[in-house]
């Protein structure tokens, strides 16, 4: 595939964003709803750059996936607290209605899904890596797409599951959507699975689908490494696996 560059493209603008609402999803993860006049919308799975500006003009920028289904003028983020961090503590602990910041994007042309893609979809989330995958699940429900979706979501404990009620409801009301949760540290008393890190039997093999799925894996680097290895052993084609990694190489 070749693409020719014609006239120099314009830089993506920064958009002024206003916090419209915010709530805790878990004890350390918070959803922040941003009102962004002029925002063109995005594709499910893409991310934005978020820039915070102190009163003396100092700025810090970090990248966050969009959690919401594509929509013009509005964005929802979900941020996991990194205790010693610079930007996430403000978003998780400080942001409140009316606060202003800037966003730029949408960014990421590879880790994205839209309803034109005919294949079944396997989503593999580790911790806050569920955020861009949730945008895909939400978008699928919103547009009434029928491709089979299977989300495997690994969290430390049930208390660490983000979007827990919404996922429960969606899995019951959206035909073709399956959600499996697994816990690394401690699960529910009646869980059949022993808590622990991702194991081969946690991920469906390629022939568990009516056709080979597109696979999206998102989470901490170690999780993505482990999942990628298992998926390939389960017969998934490496070219069908798209990855995104958050945070350090733990």
């Amino acid at each position: 595939m070749t693409v020719a560059w014609s006239s120099p493209p314009l830089p993506m603008p920064w958009y002024r964003a206003r916090v419209e609402d915010a709530w805790l999803e878990t004890r350390t993860a918070r959803t922040v709803v941003l009102d962004v006049p002029g925002w063109p919308g995005h594709h499910a799975g893409q991310h934005v750059d978020v820039r915070l500006t102190a009163d003396d003009g100092y700025t810090a920028t970090r990248t966050y996936s969009v959690a919401s289904a594509p929509e013009a003028g509005r964005l929802v983020l979900t941020v996991q607290l990194v205790t010693e961090g610079e930007v996430s503590p403000w978003l998780v602990g400080e942001a409140r209605e009316g606060d202003e910041l800037e966003v730029r994007g949408p960014i990421g042309g590879w880790f994205r899904w839209d309803e034109q893609m005919p294949e079944p979809v396997l989503l593999v989330a580790g911790g806050s890596g569920v955020v861009p995958l949730m945008a895909m699940v939400r978008h699928r429900s919103r547009v009434g797409a029928v491709q089979p979706f299977h989300l495997v979501y690994s969290a430390r404990t049930p208390d660490h599951v983000i979007y827990t009620n919404e996922l429960f409801a969606l899995a019951r009301t959206s035909p073709g959507l399956r959600v499996d949760r697994l816990y690394t540290r401690g699960g529910l008393p009646d869980d059949a699975r022993e808590p622990g890190r991702l194991r081969p039997q946690d991920l469906p093999a390629v022939d568990a689908f009516p056709a080979p799925p597109v696979v999206y894996v998102c989470g901490p680097s170690g999780f993505v490494e482990a999942a990628g290895g298992i998926l390939i052993d389960q017969g998934h084609d490496s070219g069908a696996i798209r990855t995104e990694r958050f945070g350090p190489s733990s």
Partner: peptide, 13 residues
Amino acid sequence: MDIVTRGFVGRRS
């Protein structure tokens, strides 16, 4: 842009 993010100080490494 004339934006100030209320309550944000930053780490300034």
